[in-house]
Every structure is written in C-alpha cells, then in structure tokens.
Amino acid sequence: MSSLVTRVKLKQIEQLIEKGKRLDGRGLTDYREIKIEQGVIEKAEGSARVLMGKTEVLVGVKIETGTPFPDTPDDGVMTVNAELVPLASPDFEPGPPDENSIELARIVDRGIRESHAIDTAKLCITSGKKVFVVFVDVYVLNHDGNLIDASALAAVAALMNTKMPNYEVKDDEVIIKQGYTPLPMTSHPITVTLGKINDKLIVDPWLEEEQVIDARLTMAFNDDGNICAIQKGCAGYFTQQQILEGMKLAKEKATELRKKLKW
C-alpha cells in the first residue's frame, strides 16, 4: 500500500510503536478481544464463529464419504478452502480464489494437517475404498486484519464442535445410522501471527497495521508446545535474531490463546 493516507498513518503508527503503544490502544503483544461461538450453523456437522476485534470469521465443517488418496488408503481426507466473501471488505472481489485466499487456506490447512489434529485413521470406512472426507470451509465475514489467526482459531473450534455420523457397512454399502460421535482429534493447533514494523514485533496486526507492516510471521503450535507450521509473508524480511525472538513470543501467545478453547 502506498497511498498518501497509509504513508501518513505509517508515520503515526511508527511513532506510537516506538513508545510501546498502538493506534487502537493495545500494547505491542496484546491480542484484540476474542470471542468464540461454536455450533452456530445447525446444518453443518461442525461450525464456529470467531470475532477477533472487528475481524469476523465463520467456519463450517461438512463431512461426506469419498475415496482415499492412493498413497494413504487407510486415512480419511481433510481439505481446507477459504472464501474472502465480497461483503467482508471493499478489497474483496467475487470470482475464483486469488493468491491471498489460497495462501490463507493453505496456512490453516498446514496447522491442522501437520499437528495431526484430526485422527484420520479413524475416518477410514473400508481400506482403499471408502473414507470420510472432512471439508473445512473458512468464510471471512468481516476483514479487519489478521485473518490467519482468526481463521485458524475458528477452524479448530469448528472441528472440536464436529460430529461424525454413525454408520455401518453392509455388503460394501455404507449405511448412515442414527446418532453422532465427536470427530476424533489428537491435537489442537494454535496459530499466532506477528507483524514487524521498524524492527519491532507486534502481535495480531489489525487492518491499518497490516497495510504498513514490513513483514509478517505466522507460527502454529501443537498441544506439546512444539512448532507445527510456519509461514513468513509480505515483502520484507526478518533477521535470524528476530525469528527466534518471534518464536518465543508466539509460543507464549499460543499458550494464552489456547485457554480460550475449552475441551
């Protein structure tokens, strides 16, 4: 962003950050207020709505049966898709997913996949033939920055809320029975995004900060506090020192954020 307005704003944001303050009154390492609501869409097998300040993300989980990938015949399948819905921001346009929504979906996907959040072995119906497919659809309803953390948090909250249909197999046919069991999960990845302005790290950059940050660093942590996914973004850089500093900060923040998810 290089409009005059953002340049003026950049000055202001930089000056505040030097004093350890931010435009919206937060400290450098504070998250905005976070609200999580689960089970908001009755027709979905699982769902959650997350508010991170004014950023709002809805995630719906649908479960269907399908065929497994040939190289993992005994594992269920999980896919993540993200929609930057045009009503969420004047910058979002209708049409096929652009690189931003693809990157968003792939970061959310990586956190869930690499931490083995879903116990995919338990989603196998008949080896090599039929498995459950878990569709995680991220719907951004209002864009006020840091879509990554809001989406990742909503995705995990939705998965925790997901019910799998009971079934039995008769003559190679899958018959869906009454009742549900919870989706088998082994980990609950938490994703934390940092921004860099003037060589200072800030947590949870909101829209106005996002437009002026040099670089962005996203890290996901599993239940054991180990790192399971990383993505650097934007056209800036981090020094090796800043990365390690960022990792410590992100880990701390992940522990804090995890408390918001109850299980």
């Binding site: 990586r110 180990n226 399971c228 850089y237 020094t239």
Partner: peptide
C-alpha cells in the same frame, strides 16, 4: 549481506530447539 531472512516456512513438527 544484510543478515535478512526473506522466506521462512515450515511443515512437520519441531521443538523450539530443533527449529533454532
């Protein structure tokens, strides 16, 4: 020359020490 990391990604699981 600038000691600048311009791309950093990760998948898999690493402890903070292993990552460093």
């Amino acid at each position: 020359n600038l000691n600048a990391v311009t791309l950093l990604q990760m998948d898999g699981i690493l402890t903070p020490d292993e990552f460093e």
